[in-house]
Computed example of a mutant assay.
Amino acid sequence: MNITICFASLAPEPWVQALQQALPGAQVSAWVPGAPQADHAIVWAPPQQFIDEQSGLKTLFNIGAGVDALLQLKLPPALKVVRLDDAGMSVQMAEYVCHAVIRHFREFDAYDADTQMGKWSYLKPRNRADFAVGVMGLGVLGERVTKALQVFEFPVNGYSRSPKDLPGIRCFSGTQALPQFLQATRVLVNLMPLTPETENMLNQGTLSHLQKGGYVINVARGKHLVEDDLIALIDTGHLAGATLDVFRTEPLPKEHPFWQHPKITVTPHTSARTLREESIAQIVGKIQALQRGEAINGVVDPLRGY
């Protein structure tokens, strides 16, 4: 069994060594143009040349949760694309989202501004019942986020394209239910997969449905958000602000208005990072299951985009 690793911006050597230790009977190597054919590949943003040369691949393991970049490539119809189920990302995402929600709810940005001026201030506590948090996308990461938010006793809404039933969560599903979900939401968390149908879905029309004073947290993909529409809604006062971890262009250009906007918090796509040890353990388990002829989780449906 041959396994190849192709990363656009990560050093492959630690992955090669760890995989070789976990699968001593396999031949593991980092891909270079013209390399021998492999049975399985572990990738992050591989070039089309890699796909074209590795025509004998059986499975393509993507080390991130989102596979939108892979599905933009010309992939052989028989190639099985597999995404990670979790691999340590869901708890990181829950941490990030809860931090962003609580920071906004408790008005810590306002306290920071006052303390920088040496001002001892007091803000009236907000009513938690008025801050319903809506989580768009109820996959592995989304479900973990809803559970974490419930610990802090926020009302939590959930939205997905197909029906879900989660304890303690008011669930909405389908395109027709999206306006109702947004109208019931004060803080919006986007965790939707990026597909042609969801691109630009956070726009003037949809975000205007959020309750006045709404807040946006985008931790999915930058292409979900129409950036000028967000800024306009914040500047007119309909939205209170946003925390953004993903962007249409990454790294975010220095001249981008998000950097200087006083009501937008920017982080460098760090809400949930791939953890190597957990990822390798999961990939090894899936490869071994495939060798036994067993079905595995995380196989991507190209028509649905996730």
Rank of each mutant, 00 (worst) to 15 (best):
D114L: 12
L71K: 06
N157I: 10
Q116A: 15
A232P: 00
M93V: 07
L123T: 04
P36L: 08
G25M: 09
L188D: 04
L244Q: 11
T236Y: 00
I3L: 15
G285Q: 10
G142P: 06
Q282K: 04
L233H: 00
D130P: 00
V300W: 08
D228W: 06
D235C: 05
N203R: 00
L10K: 12
R83M: 12
N62A: 04
M93I: 06
A45K: 15
L275R: 14
L239D: 04
P262T: 07
V246H: 11
R273A: 15
L244I: 14
D86P: 05
L252N: 02
Q116H: 14
D301V: 09
L84R: 08
I51G: 02
G285C: 10
N157Q: 13
R273W: 14
K74S: 15
G222V: 12
L79D: 08
V219D: 07
V216G: 06
K74N: 15
Y306G: 10
A8W: 14
A8T: 09
V145W: 04
H238A: 08
V97M: 06
Q17D: 13
K80Y: 02
A87M: 03
M117V: 03
A289K: 14
Q150N: 04
G66M: 01
A65W: 02
R273N: 14
K80P: 01
L149F: 02
M136L: 14
L71V: 14
A148K: 01
T274G: 05
V82T: 02
Q54W: 02
V145G: 05
T115Y: 09
F50D: 03
L23G: 06
T185P: 06
P167I: 00
P257A: 08
L19E: 03
V284L: 14
L178Y: 09
N190K: 07
A113T: 07
D165V: 08
G298H: 08
N203V: 12
E13I: 03
D165W: 01
L202D: 00
D68H: 01
G137C: 06
A8R: 14
A129H: 11
R276H: 11
I296C: 04
K212G: 00
G213P: 05
M89G: 06
L141W: 10
V151Q: 07
P179V: 06
P302M: 13
D114W: 09
V151P: 00
F181H: 00
T243K: 04
L244Y: 11
G305F: 06
C98I: 09
L225C: 03
S173F: 10
K286G: 02
F61L: 00
Q204T: 08
L210M: 13
E53R: 11
W259A: 06
L210P: 03
L57T: 02
E95C: 11
A22T: 00
R144C: 12
M89D: 08
G56S: 14
A30E: 12
E107M: 12
N157P: 10
D229E: 10
K124H: 00
P167R: 01
P76D: 01
P268I: 07
P24M: 09
K58N: 14
Q180I: 04
E199F: 01
A45L: 15
F7S: 12
D39C: 08
P262W: 10
A18Y: 05
G168A: 04
N218I: 03
G25K: 11
K119V: 11
A110M: 06
